[in-house]
Amino acid sequence: MNKVMSNKLIIALYTLPALILIAFLIYIPLALTGYYGLMEWDGIGEMKFIGLENYINVLKDEKFWESTSHSFLLAIFSTVSLAVYLVISLVLASKIKGAGLLRKIYLIPMLLSSVAIAQLWIKIYNPANGILNSLLKGIGIENPPVWLGNPEIVLYAIFIPILWQYAGFYILIYYAALKNIPDSLIEAAKIDGASAFQIAYKIKIPLIKGVIKVTVVLAIVGSLKYFDLIWVMTGGGPSGASEVIASYMYKMAFNSYDFGYGSAIGFLLLIITLIVTVFIRRLTASDNDTQY
């Protein structure tokens, strides 16, 4: 077996199918997206090579930068929300009563599709008979806001269901990491007189620092390319107030039939995501992390 696995030709034959699949599903589409960005094309007719014109126009496009700012704002909210998820995970991992039931409740949004969640929150935000405005009227607020129709608050209204949707995912990751910490460390800290807060801050969180770094990258990258729930709830409106990079790309490609311009936006989104990922990895790089 060792002779077989030391043979480079055999290793290449084993990895070739996976490499071909990855190339066709990831790298070739990415290369084609960058190539289409060099074209003037409506998606049906003949393509016309125009060089970097689409990319230059995107960089000059105010709507693109506005949608980019919205995506980064979502990334900031997603990153901050990780602290809340971590606190919930710490509580669940402390062997409280009903922790198993609470874990299942937090995971419910993960079982629903983004379209179903969007439709649910559209009903909640309904200005006439939605649950939220009905509650506000019940406590004396006569003119509650039109959550999805007000450009000043629509973006924040959409962030709530997005963060709710992925809460269970991050809580589950943190919970699994916390349960891998040896009980002997926690018991030793308790014997030394450490409080629950000190155990969490001085022992548990440092030991899962590597997991936290991974979730930060996942939250930011996922926010930059987020699309489906926002598109179903508002379509980027009103007046572009909830537009993000992915929804703007979709509009340009499939609504305006400018596939060249849409491809340029998509390729720039890839570049932005890669730059942000590398920046975060270097910012959080550490050689002395202890991981459980």
Rank of each mutant, 00 (worst) to 15 (best):
Y174D: 02
M233P: 03
M1A: 13
T33P: 03
S67V: 01
T215V: 15
S69P: 06
L30A: 15
T290Y: 13
I22G: 10
S113A: 13
W41V: 01
L120D: 07
F72Y: 01
V216C: 09
M110K: 06
S69W: 07
A196Q: 02
K60S: 14
M252W: 02
A116G: 04
I245Y: 01
F159W: 08
M249G: 05
I265S: 00
S113W: 04
T33I: 15
W147A: 01
G138M: 11
Y170C: 02
L16S: 14
L59Y: 00
P238I: 06
I22D: 13
G138R: 04
K3A: 15
V221F: 00
Y250P: 01
T290M: 14
L73G: 08
T68L: 06
I22A: 07
W41H: 01
A12Q: 14
M110C: 14
V211S: 08
Y250K: 02
I122G: 05
I181Q: 00
A157P: 02
Y35S: 05
I96A: 06
G168L: 06
I173S: 01
E40M: 13
G34H: 04
V4S: 11
L112C: 14
E152L: 08
E152S: 10
I230M: 07
S67D: 04
G149S: 13
E46V: 10
I280S: 09
I28D: 11
W65A: 04
F254T: 04
L148F: 04
L155W: 04
A189K: 00
G138W: 05
L111A: 11
I280W: 03
A194T: 14
L148N: 00
P206W: 08
I173W: 04
F197A: 08
L13D: 14
F77M: 00
E66H: 12
I153D: 07
N54L: 13
A188Q: 05
G237I: 01
S67N: 03
F49D: 11
T215Y: 11
I141Y: 06
I245W: 04
V87C: 05
T273A: 12
I275G: 03
G138H: 10
S113K: 06
T33V: 14
Y201F: 15
D287S: 15
S78P: 03
G130F: 12
Y27A: 15
V276E: 00
M47R: 10
V80D: 13
F279M: 08
A285F: 13
Q165M: 05
Q119F: 12
N7R: 09
K209Q: 05
I153T: 00
F49H: 07
S239P: 03
E152Q: 14
I141T: 07
V80Y: 12
I117Q: 01
I11H: 06
I265F: 05
P145C: 11
A18N: 15
Q291G: 12
I181A: 02
M1E: 13
D289P: 09
A93R: 00
L101V: 07
V244I: 13
G222S: 05
E243A: 11
R282H: 12
L16E: 15
I10Q: 14
I208V: 15
K213G: 04
K123A: 14
G266D: 06
L19T: 09
K190D: 09
G51E: 09
